[in-house]
Amino acid sequence: MKDCAVLFDVTKCVGCGSCTVACKMWNGLPYEENAHGYDAKLDDKTWTVVEYHDVKKGKEDVLRFAKHQCMHCLEPSCVAVCFAKAITVSDEGAVVYDAKKCVGCRYCMIGCPYSVPKYEWDKVFPSVMKCRLCAEKLAKNESPACTSVCPSGALTFGTRDDLLDEAWARIKADSGYIQKVYGETEGGGTRWLYISDVPFKDLGLPEDIPTKSIPSTIHDYTKWKPGIFVGAAAVFGALGLYTKRRVKIENEQRQGEGGKEDV
């Protein structure tokens, strides 16, 4: 299936953490305490977490759960900034990492607007670790491990266009939702889409990410470079010849006037 995506409906999540367990089992990651709860935190052994958030909904205090993992951007920053082309986008749209090519510059970690890639700091030859949207399952037309186990229907797997229609249909049908699909335009759009009844920033989703994708922001700079190199070569070459000749003529004039200085 091309153009894979996942819709996460915050209002339906019950915070059970099944998705985090499924993720660890499929990817062979060791169990750790931080996969779900108030202190849940992504790390090299935990590629998805369910965070608990006490938030205000209007005047009401409510408990909400937010699943975090790689957002699988349509135009991923990590792919563009990678030093060694170790991160690529699969045919299905999953952003996958190849440790064999990785040089370990960690630019993907700092360049990711969601700070998703994590590092194996304690290893001699560390790898970058992050959700791969179960790329090998997608290639076999299966859904990712986390979406297949969700008991409450909070996670829906499908194509991005279908899921965007679905998300807006749900938002229109229920006035409780925030009038926004998070991930529709963030950084040029992501494959993980969020809809919620509480503000996204209270769920740990950064709201200041520009709609213009980071690769195109960088390209706005890079596109000048060939011109600058060629232009500088031409200008410097010409200037160099001109100023050299001018210095020579000045010296000749000085010599003509009786000066003894040589070049």
Binding site: V79, A80, V81, C82, F83, A84, K85, K100, K101, C102, V103, G104, C105, R106, Y107, Y119, F125, P126, S127, P215, I218, H219, Y221, T222, K225
Partner: peptide
């Protein structure tokens, strides 16, 4: 010494990752 996988350091010479400013630097 800064890069994590120094055993792979030669890789960037042949990766031609022109979209990355860090590659341009290197």
């Amino acid at each position: 010494i800064e890069i994590g996988r120094w055993d792979n350091f030669y890789w960037f010479f042949i990766s031609f990752a022109w979209t990355s400013p860090l590659y341009e630097v290197a």
